[in-house]
Design a protein around this nucleic acid. Structure first.
Lengths: 123, 123
DNA sequence: CAGCATCCAGGACGATACTG
DNA sequence: CAGTATCGTCCTGGATGCTG
């Protein structure tokens, strides 16, 4: 009794697809951690101050489902799981770098530290 | 009795600042509309199928507060308001274009239309 | 025409406790 | 160690009605 083709949230524009994959409270931070190398679960949790296990797991699973992250499970006791960026995940690097630089430029030109928000509209 | 410097959501990384400014159900769509030229409120609402007045207003105000959008009010009756991108808003163009192209590439290589989700891990 | 006010549902996120 | 399960809260966004 369920609609088979139900797709309530359908991305129209490719840019929105991209946006959806990096949107999330911790995703950019997780991406950055993994970009610096392979990491274990606890390692990530220690680096990402304040993140809960639930959110770390959830975001990692989403990124894995999106094909950005590779999850390698070692059949050992105690368990050992390693996370790393896939090629697709790594391919986000130029984009995120550009976001980073735009953010810096924006902060510098629009919000100089210590200055009140004054927009000087010359002319 | 309230902490004066309370800042519950503080962006750490410049990339997150950028992300915050383009995150929102309709922001990329609004940006795209305005990128093609100056638009009036109703014009935007007609183009953005499904958006409510509330969300259009809200997103426009946020983008205005962020310095991405310029709002020009004509003191007429009936009211006339024109929205356009500021220079800062326009400067997002390369970034959004790159998001667009990454999204296309991602869709082509990871989700060929009509194909089931099969990850063929050669080797 | 271009809003604003109000109410509401769903999802994102956090806190906490438990487990193979 | 690396999770899962449950609960509660806040926030986003949608629906609707009213206004200068």
């Amino acid at each position: 009794m369920q609609a088979p083709q139900e797709q309530p949230k359908k991305e129209h524009c490719p840019a929105e697809t991209t946006l959806a994959m990096i949107s999330g409270r911790w995703k950019l931070l997780i991406w950055r951690e993994l970009f610096s190398g392979v990491k274990r679960f606890n390692e990530l949790q220690r680096s990402l101050t304040g993140i809960t296990q639930k959110m770390l797991t959830q975001h990692l699973r989403e990124m894995e489902a999106d094909g950005l992250v590779y999850r390698k499970v070692y059949a050992e006791i105690p368990p050992k799981v390693e996370y790393s960026l896939t090629e697709t995940g790594k391919s986000l690097q130029p984009l995120i770098e550009q976001m980073h630089e735009w953010g810096i430029e924006f902060t510098v030109t629009s919000h100089p530290p210590g200055s009140p928000v004054i927009t000087v509209d010359s002319k």
